[in-house]
């Protein structure tokens, strides 16, 4: 994608996107609602006109190519199965339109149905299937066309939590098996982190960062990515010129206000636990400190009671710094003592 722009009635929803999606990758577009990720996907599919810029697939400009001619297949959020056709016809429709003979269609549909486990449901209408089965039909309909690119628009959002986890694993293994390019849109960062090998974080029509899941988590390029990726979000404490941040799991909690902390600590603050959430293996502590509200994540080995006075300390190598105005990440090494909030450096 080269400088791709999308405007609706003078409102720019995608602002000059430059993005290369490597062949065979599993790329996830992630961002909050209205960030332009679905619009981007729909432009790739040909379902939305591109206002400006170029879209190239395998080096060929496809801006004006009809959706059916782009050799892409899409799985929609609501599956978009044809309700009046049975499963067989739903899968075969695209094949027949591509000029395959009825005999070939039958063979291909049966093969794909076998793979996704739908063989005994071919004569059923979508309304007679469960959510998970419909999802499989949608996948089969996309897979049977053997496209160059799979586009998926929040395909798991209508499934219950258990089925979603299962389908997540199935989709990643399907990607490995097929080796085709997957472009996957979601607002769910867990999906993004677990499935993608390249994640594109978007906000307000722009790319905030493009990186692997590990890099995205460890080296967020800006405040937005730092807070969007990770649950609970990174602690951000504003100072005069910049904001400092650290992940909840990197914060050490020590009961009492004594300064018995590790010498390498880059950040220290004192406060009181105002709330806690027990997640099972972990506990989240909400600490009201002098520098602001801090969330700390600890293993549930020993519990600290609400109201306990605590010292929060974070090792220097786990601190992030962001420019107050632009939100851009600054290098970690350049932390200065005076720029820290009332907590201070150890």
């Amino acid at each position: 994608m080269q400088q791709v722009v999308k405007k609706y009635n003078n409102q720019t929803v995608v602002k000059g996107l430059d993005l290369v999606i490597p062949d065979g990758s599993f790329t996830v577009l992630v961002g909050p609602s209205g960030c332009g990720k679905s619009t981007t996907l729909r432009m790739i599919a040909g379902l939305e006109e591109i206002t400006a810029g170029d879209l190239l697939i395998d080096g060929q400009r496809v801006n004006d190519l009809a959706p059916g001619k782009r050799d892409v297949a899409m799985v929609f959020q609501n599956y978009a199965l044809y309700p009046t056709m049975n499963v067989f016809d739903n899968i075969a429709f695209g094949l027949l339109n591509r000029g395959f003979s009825k005999k070939d269609c039958k063979r291909m549909v049966e093969e794909i149905a076998e793979i996704v486990g739908l063989s005994s449901y071919l004569q059923r209408k979508p309304a007679e299937l469960s959510g998970g089965q419909r999802q499989r039909v949608a996948l089969a309909r996309a897979m049977v066309k053997k496209p160059r690119v799979f586009l998926m628009d929040e395909p798991l959002s209508n499934l219950d939590a258990k089925l979603r986890n299962q389908m997540r694993v199935e989709l990643t293994s399907l990607h490995k098996q097929l080796g085709t390019t997957f472009i996957y849109v979601t607002h769910d960062q867990v999906e993004a982190m677990t499935m993608g090998d390249q994640i594109v974080v978007m906000n307000e029509g722009e790319i905030m960062q493009k990186a692997s899941p590990f890099e995205l988590y460890q080296q967020p390029a800006n405040l937005f990515v730092a807070q969007f990726i990770g649950s609970p979000a990174m602690n951000i404490l504003p100072t005069d010129k910049e904001s400092i941040g650290f992940r909840p799991e990197k914060a050490m909690l020590t009961a009492g206000s004594a300064r018995t902390i590790q010498p390498a600590a880059g950040f220290v603050d004192h406060g009181r636990i105002v709330a806690r959430e027990i997640l099972g293996s972990d506990v989240l502590y909400y600490v009201s400190g002098r520098a602001g509200k801090i969330i700390a994540r600890k293993a549930a080995d020993e519990l600290l009671a609400e109201g306990t006075e605590v010292t929060v300390s974070v090792a220097a190598e786990h601190l992030y710094r962001f420019d107050q105005e632009t939100g851009r990440a600054l290098s970690v090494a350049a932390i200065k003592q005076e720029s820290l909030p009332s907590g201070g450096l150890g």
Binding site: A66, P67, G68, A73, N78, A80, Y82, F93, G94, N97
Partner: peptide
């Protein structure tokens, strides 16, 4: 009639006539 059915049909290379015959008319039945 949900719009995404037409989008799915466009990706399925359905011609206007096919879309009318296989999607619009059955959905309007």
């Amino acid at each position: 009639i949900p719009k995404d059915l037409y989008e799915a049909a466009a990706l399925d290379r359905s011609t206007r006539w096919q879309t009318l015959r296989r999607i619009t008319i059955p959905m309007l039945s």
